[in-house]
């Protein structure tokens, strides 16, 4: 099986504090991989390192066999990795549609072009309309993204993440702060958008994690203490002791 993302002894310090303490992890292509762990374990930091937002202190990160350790976020994105953020990160003044359309432009080769009208780019507009339909925001076409309801903004966040057609998708706590019903909708959406792609997600809701993931890695104090199938993780005594506790029994 081909490896989508490979972390090799990745470390990250903030001053004297080591947040990520030698993580080695392979995530296979087409896998739905969840990263769980207590608050402050370094899950989001790991996301930032993989997506290029933060630079590693040592170690290497490969994306589909290519070393991306020292690349800029946009260079990593162009190589087929796209991510969402824990705190909603959209273009608040642009319309919902424009948010999605901006996100499809690069992948269709329009780059920095200033000699074509964006309204006339049939492929970009079709793709954007498709994504709008998929994330269920077609009726909110012209609404400025900043005024959407929270759950809608989270859906838009996922829409922006997948719009460019990246085959590796990273979602940082996609259901955080949602009601039960909203979470169910979000899970259905995640299931739909991750089909045929590699999905890596950080998530606190164990129901979501065990319902979605093919494999789960447990991060505690900057180290992976276990990486296995959901059932094995549930049964792993070290994991139960370090993190799952009550939630594993639930």
């Amino acid at each position: 099986m081909t490896v989508a993302i490979s972390l090799k002894d990745v470390r990250k310090n903030f001053g004297p504090t080591e947040i990520i303490r030698g993580v080695t992890l392979d995530i296979n292509q087409g896998e739905r991989h969840a990263i769980i762990g207590p608050n402050g374990a370094g899950k989001s930091t790991m996301f930032h390192l993989i997506s290029g937002r933060l630079k590693v202190s040592s170690g290497a990160i490969e994306l589909k066999g290519e070393d991306v350790t020292h690349l800029q976020p946009y260079e990593i994105n162009r190589r087929g990795l796209s991510r969402s953020f824990q705190v909603t990160n959209i273009f608040p003044k642009l319309s919902v549609y424009e948010n999605i359309r901006c996100a499809v432009l690069w992948s269709l080769g329009y780059r920095y072009s200033f000699w074509r009208f964006v309204d006339r780019l049939q492929d970009a507009n079709e793709r954007a309309a498709e994504i709008m339909e998929m994330i269920g925001l077609s009726s909110r076409h012209d609404v400025p993204a900043g005024v959407l309801a929270y759950a809608e903004q989270r859906a838009l966040e996922i829409g922006i993440t997948i719009a460019g057609g990246a085959d590796v998708i990273m979602l940082d706590e996609p259901t955080a702060g949602m009601s039960h019903a909203e979470t169910e909708q979000a899970v259905a959406l995640i299931r739909k958008v991750s089909e045929g792609r590699t999905l890596i997600m950080v998530e606190h809701d164990m129901g979501v994690v065990f319902g979605l993931a093919d494999r789960i890695s447990v991060l505690v104090y900057g180290q992976i203490i276990a990486s296995d199938a959901p059932q094995a993780i549930r049964a792993n005594p070290a994991v139960r002791e370090a993190y799952l506790g009550e939630e594993a029994h639930a």
Binding site: Y74, N89, F91, P92, C102, A163
Partner: peptide, 12 residues
């Protein structure tokens, strides 16, 4: 609107 997000959709 959001330079950080722009970097994560492929744009420098």
């Amino acid at each position: 609107d959001n330079p950080e997000r722009a970097e994560f959709i492929g744009y420098s």
